[in-house]
Amino acid sequence: MREVTFLEAIRLALWEEMERDPNVFLIGEDIGRMGGAFGVTEGFLARFGADRVVDAPISETAIIAVCVGAAAAGKRGVAEMQFMDFISYGFDQVVNVAGTYLYRSGGKTPIPIVVRGPSGGYVGGSLYHSQQFEAWFFHTPGVKVVQPAFPDDAYGLMKASIRDNNPVVFYEHKYLYRRIKGPIPEAHEDYIVKLGSARVRRYGEDITVVTYGAMVHFALDAAQRLEKEGISLEVIDLRTIKPLDMKTILESVRKTSKVLIVYEAPKTGGVGAEISARIAEQAFEWLDAPIMRVAAKDAFVPFAEPLEKYVLPSVDDIVFAARELAAY
């Protein structure tokens, strides 16, 4: 085992996949000479050369499109969005071009690409460096959506995403990059985390918390606080948002009969809405309370600290909601 930061886990996964498969290449803004805005690709240019570590112009459309076209011709491109907010520029490539490609090629041309980059708030990034727009792609057929919370999952999911034959949008929460450390397996173990498998990060009895990304850590903090009050939370880290691991969710719901869904994106139309609907459809009789959600307010992520704190969900929000559910 290697003890690494969340960021280093992603860096190592990329590095090892580049070493393993010559078809893998990286493309993005400032990823070569500078090693990426957050340093995820530091040292890659010297090792792998400019054809496999491509410093692209500021062209998110072209960055993703190059991965798509190269994928149609047998390569595996990994596109870095300097901030995931900028994927809006490349939206058409993900949704209308990459997402549909296999379908409109009669199943003959898979598009193995990864579009990855830092997402999420809590760092004062303001409107365009803080967003969590995973719901856009959650809603898109043909695309998979991943967001890890721990280094081992980031490592294993990145490897799985690169080897997967479909377009994967991979969210790396920037709040976790250097704050979260943990063990990851050694390179020779070829460790993979299967896409579409959630993980119970904490077992509990009273309430199922379904969450992903940075919110997993918030939920775990809340669980620790509530333990002292005699409320036991079971925390499910989805890891992959699409495909959704309903089996793990439903198993837990049948045990606890109470559900709290936590996500960092604006509440309306978020991933939690779909999870809530599916639980209502598939496990209604097992429920002892309304399904509840803690999410961001339906606003942008503002700059000033009091504003950002007001909009984004907090550990307190989770604690209060869980108490309410426990008392129901």
């Binding site: 010559p22 078809n23 290449f25 054809d51 496999r52 491509v54 062209s59 459309t61 072209a62 499109a65 190059v66 991965c67 798509v68 076209g69 190269a70 994928a71 149609a72 011709a73 047998g74 390569k75 491109g77 490539q93 071009v97």
Partner: peptide
């Protein structure tokens, strides 16, 4: 833009 990717694959 996609065409650039097909050509990038040839370059590789």
């Amino acid at each position: 833009a996609v065409a650039c990717g097909v050509l990038w694959a040839q370059r590789l």
